[in-house]
């Protein structure tokens, strides 16, 4: 897998040379559009991070995950992972550090840690993605897709725990 990215670069550059495209100016134009793009995202991302931070700091996330853990238990998700399942839709770095601490606490090859890994790998930071993706859309109310994604992430977390038990 580690060869893929260098090969992609090589391929694109060779193709561009063959088609007589000036690589450096084109690349610079791409970076220029990355500047505009990132600056457009900055306010959205800062707001999402502020929300996540006080969500954690107020221990509201702990309370909600304590409330939800019986439900998670019913689906076969270990209660130690309820918080991970809750934080993942909000914060990528938060859930990654939580995953790190789960692996450290229970050992990399334990059932809990493997569950956590599969759960982490099979879902995404939904709220952040929705803020970024729909930043330029007139209609920002996308309740149906967000609800569907949260539901299917929950189901995939349950499946992840089940798979870890048998595989």
């Amino acid at each position: 897998m580690r060869y893929v990215i260098p090969l992609i670069f090589l391929l694109v550059i060779l193709y561009a040379v063959k088609k007589r495209v000036r690589v450096y100016p084109a690349f610079t134009r791409g970076v220029k559009s990355a500047v505009d793009f990132t600056l457009g995202l900055l306010p959205l991302i800062v707001c999402v991070f502020i929300m996540c931070e006080i969500f954690e700091a107020s221990h509201l996330s702990d309370k909600i995950s304590a409330m939800l853990s019986p439900l998670f238990g019913l689906l076969g998700i270990p209660p130690q992972l309820a918080k991970l399942a809750l934080i993942k839709p909000f914060s990528g770095s938060g859930s990654l550090s939580m995953l790190g601490s789960v692996i450290k606490t229970y050992g990399a090859d334990s059932y809990i840690a493997r569950c956590a890994c599969v759960m982490y790998g099979s879902s995404e930071t939904v709220f952040y993605i929705s803020a970024v993706y729909f930043s330029k859309c007139a209609n920002k109310k996308r309740l149906l897709p967000v609800a569907i994604i949260l539901l299917s992430s929950l189901i995939s977390a349950a499946v992840a725990c089940l798979l870890c038990r048998i595989m």
């Binding site: 550059i13 561009a16 084109a26 690349f27 134009r29 791409g30 970076v31």
Partner: peptide
Amino acid sequence: YAVWMGLSQVAEESGL
């Protein structure tokens, strides 16, 4: 984004 949008601009201008 800088790395990938730079590369994708090259890919786009070459028709890839």
